[in-house]
């Protein structure tokens, strides 16, 4: 193969084709890591996402998390593995999707993201970009404070965003999971609004900066 043809292939249109869904048609294994600081709702975000994909969308999912000292002092994480077969190894190895809420989390985990993977990070987290993975910086915490006056819903906004931007979970399922969790809580409405906001935000971003294959 000549140099020319190689280049030609590299820049072929096919590679720029817009993908509607981050998940490949046949998921052999897809790894998601949600990371951030203690108190940001990282574990519950992981649980909600895992539950929505597992029970809601009916896929094989296992979700695990860091415990103990590792989970304190500003760095906590939840791993979600999706697979079309049984999940043999339930921790992240090569991350397909990283959601990072803090700079520590971004620095710690971005190196494990696949080249073809996607990083969605809170704006503050990404001061110095690393690696080749596509990175989006979205000010989830800022949005939560401004739009809802409560930064606690930043993770729910992110859930909505992830769901509409990447398509890894259906809107119905993630809504169902959030609804079930806050069933008898006075925060149900707040969370549903935040989720919806995140969902629209993800759609908007997708138009401006879509996923490509």
């Amino acid at each position: 193969m000549t140099e020319k043809s190689k280049n030609k292939k590299y820049s072929s249109k096919k590679n720029n084709k817009i993908r509607k869904n981050l998940l490949p048609d046949s998921i052999i294994r897809f790894e998601i890591r949600i990371s951030g600081a203690g108190g940001q709702g990282i574990i519950s975000t992981g649980m909600l996402l895992g539950e929505a994909i597992s029970i809601g969308d009916g896929k094989n999912v296992s979700q695990s998390q860091a415990y103990g000292p590792e989970a304190r002092g500003g760095a906590t994480r939840a791993d979600i593995i999706i697979s079309d077969s049984e999940i043999y190894f339930p921790e992240c190895n090569k991350i397909d999707l990283l959601v990072a809420f803090t700079d520590t989390a971004y620095e710690k985990h971005s190196a494990h993201v696949k080249q073809t993977g996607l990083i969605i990070a809170d704006e503050h987290a990404v001061e110095m970009k690393m690696g080749t993975a596509k990175t989006l910086d979205i000010p989830f915490i800022e949005f939560a404070k401004k739009k809802f006056g409560n930064q606690i819903v930043a993770n729910i906004i992110a859930l909505g965003f992830v769901s509409s931007y990447t398509g890894i979970v259906s809107k119905g399922s993630i809504m169902g999971a959030v609804e079930d969790k806050f069933e008898n809580s006075k925060y149900l409405e707040l969370n549903l609004k935040a989720l919806d906001f995140g969902f629209s935000l993800g759609k908007k971003y997708f138009k401006e900066n879509p996923l490509t294959a």
């Binding site: 809601g56 999971a177 069933e183």
Partner: peptide, 16 residues
């Protein structure tokens, strides 16, 4: 809408 937490044959399902 809440998630459907039963299998088609009526078994309760949990994510735990």
């Amino acid at each position: 809408m809440a998630l459907n937490r039963t299998t088609s044959d009526g078994h309760p399902v949990r994510f735990v």
